[in-house]
């Protein structure tokens, strides 16, 4: 099939950036979206032009590196899917496809479709851990039974791949879904309870410092999240945060 691509080109952080149009032909419906961009890039290089820069690594939906805003949707059409898992059979012959980077003040563009998501790491560094040393002097793993239901819910929250689609989809560029996923994982487990209050305070503080917007409960994040992180996590984080604010900081 043949497509017309409109792609955001921005030659470095200081460039203003613009949309550019590229026709592509002979697209195989079995190709993944990124393989389609690979083919475009090989063509651009052969023509002496600069290929489109984009982030990707695992190409199987788990590393969270790929990040394209396609036809107005984070990771493109289809539910619970990353850009790398999107296949060309989701598009029609003759279609125009608009491809942009994540847009958020906290995610500055490095080049073309590549953005800097360092803010996510800094939020995790502020408190996204259990303060246990890696010394090997831990107790036997089965000494702390965890009810299966809690373990399963903690696991579901822990599957966040840190892609940033939630921020890109939110009209306020809020990072609540991402932060709440980590807060929930630990809040649900006995190992995480000890520092729960401290953790949520520190992570929320860093989130605000990074310039993410407020949550107004529109739910766009949940709808576009490739792994289905649930809004319940935001509710849980709000409760945790309220509880933490009521008790005095230690």
């Amino acid at each position: 099939m043949n497509l017309t691509l409109k792609i955001w080109r921005q030659n470095g952080p200081d460039d203003k950036g613009h949309m550019e149009t590229y026709p592509v032909s002979d697209v195989n419906p079995e190709m993944s979206f990124l393989e389609m961009i690979d083919v475009l890039n090989e063509k651009l290089i052969a023509e002496g032009k600069e290929p489109v820069a984009f982030d990707h690594d695992c190409r199987e939906g788990i590393c969270g590196m790929c990040s394209m805003f396609i036809n107005g949707e984070a990771h493109g059409p289809g539910k619970r899917i990353t850009t790398c898992q999107l296949h060309m059979r989701s598009f029609n012959d003759g279609e125009t496809v608009i491809i942009e980077p994540w847009r958020a003040a906290a995610f500055p563009v490095i080049k073309d479709l590549v953005v800097d998501r360092g803010a996510f790491d800094r939020i995790q560094q502020a408190g996204g851990y259990v303060s246990v040393n890696t010394s090997g002097n831990t107790i036997d793993a089965n000494a702390i039974p965890v009810p299966k239901r809690d373990a399963d819910r903690a696991f579901d929250a822990a599957t966040c791949i840190g892609c940033g689609a939630c921020v890109a989809s939110c009209k306020n560029s809020s990072a609540m879904l991402f932060v709440s996923a980590k807060v929930s994982q630990f809040a649900l487990l006995p190992q995480g309870k000890v520092e729960a209050k401290d953790r949520v305070r520190k992570m929320v503080k860093q989130m605000d410092l990074e310039g993410f917007g407020n949550c107004t409960n529109t739910g766009a994040c949940e709808a576009e999240c490739p792994v289905g992180i649930s809004l319940e996590n935001i509710a849980r984080m709000n409760r945790e945060y309220m509880g933490a604010s009521l008790s005095s900081p230690d």
């Binding site: 851990y129 259990v130 246990v132 890696t134 090997g136 831990t138 107790i139 036997d140 793993a141 089965n142 702390i144 039974p145 965890v146 009810p147 299966k148 373990a151 399963d152 903690a154 696991f155 822990a158 994982q185 630990f186 487990l189 190992q191 995480g192």
Partner: peptide, 18 residues
Amino acid sequence: DQCVAQGVPFARDYGGLL
């Protein structure tokens, strides 16, 4: 032991054990 202490959510059975 180390991973469980860090909060790694391994699969568990209905008794809550790994």
